[in-house]
């Protein structure tokens, strides 16, 4: 019993000690994170118009201006042509492999993250409707 109390006390002290406040963001933190996010969105926009993302010079933006018709708010959803519930990145890879005749990207590839960030940013404000067709 005594030992447990001691451990608890130590734990509480550790959490409360100065410099370890996890929930107090400074304006500098927020500005930096926002800038990081915007940087990735900008990278995504650049990739969206980049004929070198695939292999035939075709770019996503040729068919999806401003990432229109990508409906990020509806994912994950059942994709009839795949016969299962799929995530947005899987449909990005579908278009990457087919109209762009390119190689698919890993879900956590920085390029994929940037493409996802851009498509979602252009759709900001639209109600989330996962599963919707």
């Amino acid at each position: 019993m005594r030992a447990i109390t001691l451990v608890l006390t130590l734990a509480v002290t550790a959490i409360a000690s100065p410099g370890l406040h996890a929930d107090e963001f400074t304006p500098e933190d927020l500005a930096r994170w926002q800038a990081q996010f915007e940087g990735v969105v900008a990278e995504g926009r650049a990739l969206w118009g980049d004929g070198k993302l695939g292999r035939n010079g075709v770019a996503c933006g040729q068919c999806h201006p401003n990432a229109a018709n990508t409906h990020p708010e509806t994912y994950p959803k059942f994709q009839k042509q795949l016969g299962r519930v799929a995530s947005l990145w899987e449909m990005i890879n579908w278009c990457l492999r087919n109209p762009l005749e390119g190689e698919p990207l890993a879900a956590d590839d920085p390029k994929m993250v940037a493409l996802l960030a851009y498509a979602t940013w252009e759709r900001r404000g639209v109600k989330l409707e996962p599963g919707k067709h």
Partner: peptide, 13 residues
């Protein structure tokens, strides 16, 4: 060649 979405589908415009 390819179809375009209608401008209405662009949420920011």
């Amino acid at each position: 060649a390819w179809p375009w979405p209608y401008p209405e589908t662009y949420a920011q415009a």
